[in-house]
């Protein structure tokens, strides 16, 4: 999991009354525990990534497979909507218009959530299912990476 994703995960957990959170997949195990005065965050990888074992390899985390990045499931109740390409996100159809969606909005399948532009090619990102917008991760007119989470939504 990317550091950024981990940060949003911690924020999500701390924004609620949840005191303990566990998540496990093929690559990693995450355990977040909140006490009255302490917060414990533990991340472990059952299998060490090959790149990390190579001497002299860059210290940064090797990119996870595309499928894993595209679907960073945050919580059993939440799904994420990620960018299918590198580009710039636009949360409004034009600079003076209202955003396509706001936190708390309930959107229908096929409804536009935002635009991602890559070199004058505009891609309308649509909701794949009826959902509620839980968090808007990226700000208007900011750069986005391939597979980067744009929205966290709750499937309805």
């Amino acid at each position: 999991m990317k550091l950024r994703d981990l940060k949003s995960l911690i924020k999500l957990v701390t924004d609620t009354d949840i005191t303990e959170f566990n998540m496990e997949n093929q690559e990693e195990k995450i355990h977040i525990k909140r006490g009255s005065n302490q917060e414990v965050i533990h991340v472990s990888s059952p299998v060490a990534p090959v790149a990390a074992a190579t001497p002299g390899a860059p210290a940064q985390v090797a990119p996870a497979p595309a499928t894993a990045v595209a679907e960073p499931v945050v919580d059993d109740n939440y799904d994420s909507v990620s960018s299918p390409m590198v580009g710039t996100i636009y949360r409004k159809p034009s600079p003076d218009a209202d955003p396509f969606v706001k936190v708390g909005d309930i959107v229908e399948a096929g409804q536009t959530l935002c635009l991602v532009e890559a070199m004058k090619l505009f891609n309308e990102i649509e909701a794949e299912f009826k959902c509620k917008i839980i968090e808007i991760v990226k700000g208007d007119a900011t750069p986005v990476e391939f597979g980067e989470t744009l929205f966290i939504v709750e499937k309805l």
Partner: peptide, 29 residues
């Protein structure tokens, strides 16, 4: 760059490309 068409610096054409796609498949451009 990327797609303005200019005649001596003046714009003669506007190109607006739109895509409908999922993560792994383009439906249309």
């Amino acid at each position: 760059w990327p797609n303005d068409i200019l005649i001596d610096g003046a714009k003669i054409s506007g190109l607006l490309n739109e895509m409908n796609a999922e993560t792994e498949q383009i439906h249309f451009v």
